[in-house]
Amino acid sequence: MQPSYRSKYNTHVIRIIVILVVLAIAGIGVRAMMIPESFGRYGHYRGEAVVDEMNREIRNGTNASCLPCHPYIKEMHFSGIHKTVSCEFCHGPVAAHIQDGKVIDKLPKKQGEAIKTLCLRCHNQIIRARPRESIKMVEMPKHLEDKKVGIDHTCDQCHNVHAPLMWVKQAKAMMGVVEEEAKQ
């Protein structure tokens, strides 16, 4: 005689199927709710992400964001051979200086040894990697010795950092020296 069972022979199988179906439906439902609204608008990504990226803060302005307030520097900088050097490379990003049209902080000016390091980023002869359209290269401290100035001189004692040859030319004019122009 077979014992009597409360459940039918396939009760558990049916229950498992029901549970799996419920889980699947719940899964599909939750997934549908979790997909961001703009997802898939342009491709397999969140469309609004493009807007997020576009609205990233612009921290480096351009020279044009500096010059309106610094007209004297502008005049000097663009008359010299450093006119391709960006303001923000040496001084830092405009966003650290101006926010919402107001000055929030001063930008650093390199001084002393730091200015020498800065100049030598481009003008260091020993690196020997400055290609064809070359810029003026110097070898330190040979350059100081050649020019017969103190060995501890920093670059900005002879060269205006914005227009490197300005003072040199002025000095030469005062001294009546004109011939060396071609060599520069």
Partner: peptide, 19 residues
Amino acid sequence: LAIGSDNVSPESLALDHKI
């Protein structure tokens, strides 16, 4: 863990075996 079923009849176990 028994999915609420107490049925261990040969019929039920044969089904289980197939699964």
